[in-house]
Design a protein around this nucleic acid. Structure first.
Lengths: 230, 230
DNA sequence: TAGATTGTTAATCGATTAACAATC
DNA sequence: TAGATTGTTAATCGATTAACAATC
């Protein structure tokens, strides 16, 4: 029985997805600025290269606390530390890579993960031709070992890059093994229990989005030239 | 000089990004339903597996026209054709793959692209060890040939998977060559002219988003158990 | 002090949801 | 006809922007 005075949900109010997405970008930009020797930055200058307005930068940051100094701006070192903590990237995350096809191999070599504390510590695949192969100090293991290995290595996050047809069943195995979050690259909608976090990365859908934008901007050019030929 | 009566912008009103994103998902779901032998579907049943409410499905579709039949629902065949046209995936799109590292190789083999009419027709890389290699009926070409090849093969879209440091300069080359859209996998914010469409896919940022969700849901569990132990 | 810049409030804008007459 | 379901309107909800007192 909960002792909450009102029937308040147990979930902490998550910052809106859009805010978190932008904060990731700010963090990257701040690291770039620091590498260039800057020590402080204003909301306007931080947002400009990302096409984000100064008021929005301040509001996004204010969501998580007071980090700025009126008249000065933000101290870059302090803000980086604070945002890393907020995003949960101030410590290492052990990852499982599930599905060792082309995409899996690419993710294994992706530098953007390592630099954020994400470390692949296990690779799984069911193809007998792949199981047992050694890559990067790791050995490809069969899905049968998934549950055991995930627990032993305290893996909390998984990169799911298996074919769409088996995505749901493999995701169910990951959930049963106790992972806390899944980054799904398979173009299939997954159903997971509420306590497991899920983000889908659908590359085909991204490309469709791009095609739509291009198609539309062509339409507008067409329309504009018609209009001007009256 | 424009003949527009008022100083209306020439750009056609784009459907909100969120709408287009969902429509891509509807299309995929519809194709799945068709493959299962269904012929009509209601907004409620179409949205359910995607966790989208019936009213939202109808509103999203209504953005592009009237496709439904009161009392019946939507005819799947007709709706698929209509949405393909709307999204611009009712014809083939020739693509350039720029940067042939791990990620580039994975994208080359990605089946989700081909099935949507996206066809990689050129591969570029500046590494002398890669230039000249033959893969999948294509030859890896140097960036120096980019402009010429893009024009000759009428390439409109590019997959940019080069290192972040050179992403902007390679993007500038693509723009100069006349591509209409870029799907950027490099973790760097790009500046492009307005008439070129851009979508960024930042895998590191996605994983950060996931880490944040996990971190937050842990907090809420922690808080809930504290609350219940009073 | 004067200039710069914050955090926050109020105003605007846009997106989602509920409700319902119209239709098959 | 009765039941199902649409497209659309009005109500709600949430996110962005502008403005400004407070602060260095």
């Amino acid at each position: 029985m909960s002792s909450n005075p009102e029937s308040e949900p147990a979930t902490v109010k998550l910052a809106p997805k859009a805010v978190v997405g932008r904060v990731c970008l700010y963090l990257r930009q701040l690291e770039l600025l620091r590498s260039q020797g800057e020590t402080t930055i204003s909301s306007a200058k931080l947002g400009a290269p990302l096409l984000v307005k100064n008021a929005q930068v301040r509001k996004d940051l204010a969501y998580f606390g007071q980090f700025g100094h009126p008249g000065i701006g933000y101290r870059i070192d302090d803000l980086i530390s604070a945002l890393r903590h907020v995003l949960g990237v101030d410590h290492e995350w052990p990852l499982a890579l599930v599905g060792f096809g082309n995409l899996g191999r690419a993710l294994l070599g992706y530098r953007g993960f390592r630099s954020r504390g994400f470390k692949i510590v296990a690779i799984f695949d069911n193809d007998p031709a792949k199981v047992g192969r050694k890559v990067d100090r790791l050995t490809v293991e069969p899905l049968g070992s998934l549950c055991e290995v995930v627990r032993a290595r305290q893996i909390t996050l998984a990169l799911l890059c298996v074919p769409a047809e088996v995505a749901q069943s493999v995701a169910d195995m990951l959930v049963a093994a106790g992972v806390a979050g899944i980054l799904n690259f398979a173009p299939a909608p997954l159903r997971l229990p509420d306590q497991v976090s899920l983000i889908g990365v659908d590359l085909g859908a991204q490309l469709e989005n791009l095609a739509y934008k291009v198609e539309k901007s062509r339409d507008s050019v067409r329309r504009a030239s018609q209009a001007s030929s009256y």
